[in-house]
């Protein structure tokens, strides 16, 4: 999973597989971080969180 582990090989298989994994984790992580930070800011600005979807 990480380059310092002995079974890691710098080959195409590892680039593609772990590239996709880390990209997905980054998207999920950044997405959630954005939502949480924006919610904190919104709350501090006194917004009530009206949700147009529901």
């Amino acid at each position: 999973m990480l380059p310092f582990l002995f079974e890691w090989v710098w080959d195409m298989g590892h680039y593609v597989f772990h590239g996709a994994v880390w990209a997905v984790l980054s998207i999920i992580g950044m997405g959630m971080t954005f939502c949480i930070i924006k919610s904190v800011v919104d709350t501090m600005q006194g917004k009530t969180g009206h949700d147009p979807h529901h």
Binding site: V24, I27, I28, G31, F34, C35, I36, K38, S39, V40, D42, T43, G46, K47, T48, G49, H50, D51, H53, H54
Partner: peptide
């Protein structure tokens, strides 16, 4: 949802849901 933070979080997560759904 009476708690403002959770209400805002719900709203913001809904806004970002397309990204999560596509992922």
């Amino acid at each position: 949802k009476k708690v403002p933070f959770f209400a805002n979080l719900t709203h913001n997560m809904h806004s970002a849901m397309a990204v999560f759904a596509a992922t």
